[in-house]
Design a protein around this nucleic acid. Sequence first.
DNA 1: CGGGATCCTTACTGATACTG
DNA 2: CAGTATCAGTAAGGATCCCG
Lengths: 116, 116
Amino acid sequence: MSIPEACLIGHKKEMRAVQDSMDILSGKWKIAIISSICYYNKRRFSDILKDVEGISNRMLSKELKELEINKLINRTVLDTQPISVQYELTEHGLTLKTIINNLTEWGIAHRKKIIG
Amino acid sequence: MSIPEACLIGHKKEMRAVQDSMDILSGKWKIAIISSICYYNKRRFSDILKDVEGISNRMLSKELKELEINKLINRTVLDTQPISVQYELTEHGLTLKTIINNLTEWGIAHRKKIIG
DNA sequence: CGGGATCCTTACTGATACTG
DNA sequence: CAGTATCAGTAAGGATCCCG
């Protein structure tokens, strides 16, 4: 992150970038959903429903749709009986892996800090 | 991230860790607020209000309070006329720097991808 | 300047039931 | 199984005014 002297002027660009990320990732569930898919590589609707504690199918459906629109995940209908749908991260979605890992580590560290 | 064969069992622990992080960081503004303070080291209320586009003073006030409760930031009242209040990251809050940087980079990359 | 209080609108969300 | 539809409650957020 070697940041030049432009620091003196401001960080509008960085702030904008963070906002851009959050526009897509914010919301109560998105990160958790992406994590689920990321950790398992491929994941079905009902599996994600179990991974993400507390989410309703209505919300999951909606969030998955948004993630698909933003090209972070791919949706594949499998020809099973009954039907099943598989989600996986796109190449672009995979670039979030670092962030997921950071959040996982930070969550663990934070929990230790709180509990003791 | 060398993950052992425990993969086969599941990733409940990691999922939980991510959720723990998000419980504290989610919300439309928190990450942006932390970024502002992080990038400038010390930042006053009115400055953050300008950095975080679109936030209202009511929301900023509320979010800052929550971040303070979670020990991510410190609040210092400066003895100026009129009064001013400075916020800075705690040691614990500083551990979020990696995540902020990742989000910044990802935001820039994502924008390039979308615009072309 | 840094908020708090009030009011009001919209977005988010869960529960439940239903369909291909 | 993987959603969709409807209903209704809660919470998030904005605008405005006020105060030390």
